[in-house]
Structure formats: structure tokens, C-alpha cells
Amino acid sequence: MIPFSISGRARPLVWLACSMATMASAPHAKAQSSPASQVAVYGIIDMGLEYRTHNNANGNSQWRVNSGGLNTSRLGFKGSEDLGGGLKAQFNLESEVVVDTGATGSSFFGRQAWVGVDHKDWGGVSLGRMSTVAYDFTISHDFMGFAPQYSWVTATASVPSSAFTSRISNALRYLGKFGAFKVGANVSLGEVPDSINANTGRGLSVGYDAGALSAQLSYDEGRTGATATATDSTKNRSIIASGTYALGGTKLFAGVRNTHRDPVGTINAGNPKFTSTLYWLGASTPLSPAITAFGGLYYENKHGTGSDPLMLAGKLHYNFSKRTWLYATAAIARAPSDDSTQTLTGVYRDQTPVASHQTGLGIGIQHRF
């Protein structure tokens, strides 16, 4: 036996994994003894080495070991039980894992924590913390795959940044599929006394998937900043249209997202009012049975300014198997000056940019289980 120790932060994950494994193997556990019940442990381990220019106000570059270059590293548990009559119960618990340090995300199950029921003809309803329908319907239409390294679809890496809501808490979501069409709706409760709007979220999506074409149209609205005594919320509204079209092995990607932020309180640099329209266009194509190339551009029209950031981005996948691949990413972002002022922009969506241009390069490996 090899001795080992478990850090305090890792103990909850290990405890939960062991508990789930014990439940799965218990011969008298009703949910696990039924052949119609299923529980799965899954995850993504994504690690890489990244180089970025202009990482501080002095213009210094930086090397770093990065967790989640293509996709956020995660550990999850999901399951379902057949209830008969085409109905089944479902749940999903999913936690971010910061693999380079071993830490978890800001919330233990901050990515997914929901339970619901689904009918084979009518669709499914879920309650808890979950991804929005705008996120679910748009994600496959981004040629970089909503990658932190490097995509602007969920959030633009410019100041001020525009974004739509990726996840919601205290939420109710409906997803249904009817032939080639799919529909989704979500609402999150703000839980502020005497207000049905404060700190809430709303979303509606319609999609179509048939043959070579996939397309969707989404509306997303998020409200934040209210309190029990001041129930007005800052409103962030986005309309997103996107799609893909397959031409043999080559796939074309395109989309547009219009976002309007209407703040509560004094409007200033830290609390801006703006309208932004993001466009993206890209493609993917196989270079060999194991290698696929992706590339394209993101362009943001910052309404009312003459400084519209642009990012060129691309990646290569080398597939060892269906679950493990190497990848390389590259991007360059620039924003022209606007009336002698500097618009800050960058390649990494989760970092506040500090310069009007930035370049990023990365290599990594991802394994899914």
C-alpha cells in the first residue's frame, strides 16, 4: 500500500466520490439495483502551458500552467431513473476543478446542481442551479467552443465587457425536442422581498437541427444589484442568433450577439451603460483522420465609439482516442484608439485586459472520462 494524504480542500470531493461508489455497489440500494436506474461519474481534466503578452500595466508577458484551456476542468455526477410511461427522473451535480492547484471552483457544485423529470414526448423540467438555455443552444455554434483560451462568445475580453448569462441559481428550466425543432426556457428567482424582477434571470431559445444545418435564436435577460430595500436591478439583455453548416468534413460557424446593459445608479466607467454587437465567423476542417483545424474571427461593434475590438483565433486538435487529445491554441486581439483614448482588449475572456492589444499561445492535453 502506498501512503498518501488528502488536503482539507480535497476531502469533500473524495468523500462524495467514495459515498457515490459505496451507494452504487450496495446490493440493497434500491435505486442502484434497478436496471432502469443509472448513475455515472464523469469529468474533464484539461491542462496546458500558455504564453500571453501584456499581462500587466507595465506590458510584461507571462508563462503559466493553465487548467481549462479548451474546456473547464470538472468533476460531475449524473443519473436517471425510469419511472415508467415514458417518464424519468434526472439529476446533475458538477464542480469545477482547478487542476494546476487542486482547488475547487468558488462554489462546490457551482457549475450544475439540479434535479428534475423528463418525458420522452413532452420534454423535461429541472430545478436548481444550471446552465441557461442560451448557453445550451449556442455552445455548439462557436468554432472555439466557448473556450477560455480563446473565445469571445460568452463574454468579450474588452472594457467594458459584454456578456450573456451562462448559469443561473434558484432556477426553473424547460427543455423539449420535437422532431428537428427544440425549445427551451428558463427563469431564476431573485428571492428579494416585494419584487418579482429584482436579481432575476429569464431566457427563451428556439433551435433547429436537421441534416447539415444547425441554427438557433435566443433571448437572455439578467438582472443584478438589487437589495431588499432597493429593488431596481441593472439589466443586461442579449439576443443571440447562430448556426453551423456542414460541407462534407468541413463545418462553417457564424453568429451575432447584441447586448444592451442598462445600469442602476450613477453611470461611470465602473458602472457603464452600453450597447455592443458581437459577430463571429469561423470554420473547422479535418487535416487527417486524427487532426482537425479550427479558426476564425470575433469582431465587436462597441456602439457609440470608434474603437471596435477584433480577435483572430484558432486551434488544432490531435486525437489520441475519442477521450484524449492534444491541442494547440493561438489568438491575437487588437482595438484601435477612439478619439485619443485607449480601449482595452485581450484574448482571454476571464482576465480584465490592460492594453489595447494582446497575443496568446498555448499547448495542452485534455482527457474525458
Rank of each mutant, 00 (worst) to 15 (best):
S107E: 13
V115M: 14
W114F: 07
S107Y: 09
D121K: 11
Q112H: 05
G110S: 05
G110A: 01
W114T: 01
G110T: 01
V97A: 13
G86C: 09
F143T: 06
G145V: 09
W122C: 10
V115C: 08
Y135D: 14
W114R: 03
V125A: 01
G105L: 08
T104K: 12
D118L: 00
P148G: 14
G105S: 10
H119I: 06
G102R: 11
A89M: 05
S80A: 08
I139K: 15
D118Y: 02
D100H: 10
A134C: 11
F91R: 02
D118C: 00
F109K: 03
S80L: 05
R111L: 07
G105M: 07
V97P: 00
V115Y: 10
V125K: 04
G110V: 03
L93Q: 06
G145R: 07
F91D: 04
A147Q: 10
G145Q: 08
F137R: 06
F143M: 05
G116T: 01
M144E: 15
D136F: 00
L93C: 03
D121F: 03
D136V: 06
T132E: 00
S107I: 02
G85C: 10
L83E: 05
S95E: 04
V133N: 14
F108V: 00
F146A: 03
D142Y: 02
A103D: 15
A113H: 07
G128A: 04
I139H: 06
L127P: 07
T138Q: 09
E96H: 06
G128V: 02
M130G: 02
F146K: 01
G110C: 03
D121W: 07
S131Y: 11
V99N: 11
Q112I: 00
A134Y: 01
F108H: 07
H141R: 10
K120Q: 14
K120L: 08
W122T: 13
G102F: 09
A134F: 03
D100C: 09
H119W: 04
K88A: 07
G128Q: 04
F108R: 09
V117C: 03
G86S: 10
G123C: 02
T132K: 00
D121R: 09
E96A: 15
G116K: 04
D142A: 02
G124C: 06
L83P: 13
F137W: 06
D136C: 05
K88R: 15
D136R: 02
A134T: 14
I139A: 14
F108L: 14
Q90D: 11
K88Q: 14
L127Q: 01
S140N: 13
S106K: 12
F146P: 15
V98S: 06
T132W: 00
V98H: 05
F146S: 01
Q90Y: 10
V99K: 08
F137Q: 08
D82V: 07
F143E: 05
G124W: 06
V125R: 01
F91T: 00
T104Q: 14
F137I: 12
M144Q: 15
G102Y: 06
F143G: 10
M130E: 03
S107N: 15
L93W: 08
E96T: 11
Y135L: 12
G123W: 00
W122E: 10
A113Q: 13
S106V: 12
G102A: 12
S126W: 07
W122V: 13
M130F: 02
F146E: 02
S131C: 04
P148C: 13
W122Y: 13
A134N: 13
V97C: 05
